[in-house]
């Protein structure tokens, strides 16, 4: 029979399994009721441990960032809070769940009561005093604990709301980014926008996408057509931000000859999309294939190549 460890199930609950591992586990617990019982057992224990504050900081983080993203799961956690508080009471006050320890405490109490029968008057007075003091102490202690529980719950609820808000913001941001990527992908490549007027030089604009933004589907190399009278080429390069303070851009010809280089380059950032705009004189382009490279300058001053984009330049007579 296949066997799955509780730890693996816990990783599943905390979103720490790979897609393959997750799919295998899902297939197992759907196909095998015993494994499903194990999964539910681990989940219930995980929820109870969270509610009772028994999770390690790492487990708690995973629990809050992954497990609690689902409303049904959050509801189960809320119910577990209630269960946890009542189960504690049931054990101590109504004796519903009598344990060995509880029984031994009862026996000790019974033994003491038997001794008390030997000196009824004095002992009854002592007992009354003890019960009164004990009752007062219990009353105060219960109030103090109830107060602590209220504070903890309010704090927990606040944390949960903050977390939910963060998740919603993150999803919204991702959704906007996905839209932006989709829009960029749909841009015609190359997009040449010649503009000519009496006061401004004629410019052709070439859009290039790098990294994850690049459309890997078509495989077509962008072309830049240089028509007579064109004076400048503007290269607009977009990629997902690499998080570097500085970038370096290079343009090389087909033969590897360095045409142009800029050592300290800062992109324009819109959300996590970095846009580099470079304007070069038309004289830099003689025709043929070119490679545009963007590198990030790392902390030690070295270069991390982030993207290489090729394009073709064709001169129109």
């Amino acid at each position: 029979m296949e066997s799955i460890t509780d730890k693996k199930i816990m990783y599943y609950m905390l979103g720490k399994l790979s897609e393959n591992e997750q799919a295998t586990l899902e297939k197992s617990f759907i196909s095998n009721p015993q494994i499903f019982a194990q999964v539910v057992d681990v989940e219930n224990d995980l929820i109870d441990d969270y509610v009772r504050g028994h999770l390690t900081p790492g487990e708690r983080e995973g629990f809050e960032q992954y497990f609690l993203t689902n409303p049904s799961r959050r509801q189960r956690v809320q119910i577990a809070e209630a269960l946890s508080s009542r189960f504690g009471q049931a054990v101590t006050t109504s004796g519903i769940a009598s344990t060995t320890d509880n029984r031994s405490v009862s026996r000790r109490l019974l033994a003491q009561i038997r001794i008390l029968h030997t000196a009824p008057g004095l002992i009854a007075a002592l007992a009354t005093l003890l019960f009164t003091l004990g009752g007062a102490w219990l009353f105060n202690e219960t109030r103090r604990l109830a107060q602590e529980v209220r504070v903890t719950r309010t704090e927990g609820a606040r944390r949960e709301r903050e977390l939910t808000q963060q998740i919603a913001d993150e999803r919204r941001r991702n959704s906007q980014l996905a839209g932006e990527i989709e829009r960029l992908r749909n841009l015609p490549i190359p997009q040449i926008a010649p503009s000519r007027s009496s006061s401004t030089p004629a410019i052709a604009t070439l859009f290039l996408l790098g990294g994850a933004l690049r459309d890997t589907g078509t495989g077509a190399i962008p072309r830049l057509i240089i028509s007579p009278g064109l004076e400048q080429v503007r290269i607009v390069f977009k990629m997902e931000d690499g998080g570097y303070q500085k970038y370096r851009a290079e343009l090389q010809s087909e033969s590897g000859e360095l045409i142009w280089r800029q050592g300290v380059l800062k992109p324009r950032l819109i959300r996590s999309v970095a846009t580099f705009t470079i304007t070069l004189p038309i004289s830099k382009f003689t025709g043929g294939s070119y490679t545009f490279t963007i590198s990030g300058v790392n902390k030690s001053g070295g270069l991390d190549t982030l993207s290489k984009s090729s394009f073709r330049v064709e001169k129109q007579s």
């Binding site: 109870d48 441990d49 009772r52 189960f87 504690g88 054990v91």
Partner: peptide, 8 residues
């Protein structure tokens, strides 16, 4: 109550 008691 016994099954889910606080006793990790």
């Amino acid at each position: 109550t016994e099954y889910y008691q606080d006793d990790r």
